[in-house]
């Protein structure tokens, strides 16, 4: 994933409330958090980290609209232009009968498109080896990570001071 190694200083917290307080504290101290890792989605974390709202649903709308127009347009083309056939005494262009397939294609396009987009922008895919800082992050630890590459000892000490001040249960350095 990365060409050069990064030194990461990270602290682990035992409770999501401690984590939220720590993130707030880091913001007050103007420390630049590299990333936060949690075992489950913690509510209230996104605004503290200043994460912009995800625009995934907009992508979903676009994919769905494409699926909808494609489905309806395609059936219309087939039955009015390419190969018009009368089925059951209905007109060539029998819109009500096109609705079910149009609906299914809308949902199919939107869902598949969104899922593919999600994994692509997150860089998640089978075979990807993302470095894990600590195995317990997916279990019960809440982790704040700082980028400490090339940091001076005083900066590292300041970060360590931050961790102990906010109640981190463990502080470690790892090169990933």
């Amino acid at each position: 994933m990365k060409d050069q190694n990064t030194d990461v200083l990270y602290g682990l917290y035992d409770d999501e409330q401690d984590l939220l307080k720590a993130v707030k504290e880091a913001k007050d101290q103007h420390l630049e958090i590299m990333d936060v890792f949690t075992p489950f989605p913690v509510h209230g974390l996104d605004p503290l980290l200043g994460l912009a709202e995800s625009r995934l649903h907009i992508a979903g709308f676009v994919y769905g609209a494409i699926g909808c127009l494609f489905g309806f347009g395609f059936m219309t083309w087939v039955f009015t232009r390419d190969w018009p056939i009368i089925f059951g005494g209905k007109p060539y262009f029998s819109a009500p009968a096109f609705i079910p397939v149009t609906f299914e294609l809308t949902v199919l396009f939107a869902s598949v498109g969104m899922v593919v987009t999600f994994y692509t922008i997150c860089g998640l895919w089978p075979g990807v080896k993302n470095p894990t800082l600590d195995d317990r992050i997916t279990d019960d630890k809440f982790c704040i990570a700082f980028n400490a590459s090339g940091a001076e000892d005083s900066e590292v000490d300041k970060l360590k001071g931050f961790f102990s001040g906010t109640g981190a249960s463990e502080v470690n350095m790892k090169t990933i």
Binding site: P41, V42, H57, G60, F118, Y119
Partner: peptide, 21 residues
């Protein structure tokens, strides 16, 4: 697991995706 890390941004998108799905 597709190399899942539990990053905050990933969780945010994951929740958004789950909701729309």
């Amino acid at each position: 697991s597709f190399g899942w890390t539990g990053s905050a941004k990933h969780w945010q998108r994951w929740e958004s995706l789950s909701l729309v799905l």
